[in-house]
Amino acid sequence: MDVHLRLQQVFREVFDDDELEIHDHTTAKDIPEWDSLMHVSLLVAIEGEFGIRFASAEVSGLKNVGELRGVVETKMG
């Protein structure tokens, strides 16, 4: 499964929404429940799914799903 689909699966689990579709341009404004608390929960879940670890600065600096996917892919090598 490619990174995007795996990310989408994590989003669906974290936000408890089986119909959630994410795109590179999706931001926190597009998902009502994506607030500061759920943002951290999402990143911790992504860490678990991909076996990676985000730096503190990366937690705050992500602007949209595309940037998030880029960081995940870079960390996976």
Binding site: S36, L37, L43, S56, V59, S60
Partner: peptide, 13 residues
């Protein structure tokens, strides 16, 4: 959010 909430919440979670 960036310098207190996120690092603390990340550590706790």
């Amino acid at each position: 959010r960036d310098y207190l909430f996120n690092p603390l919440n990340l550590y706790l979670q």
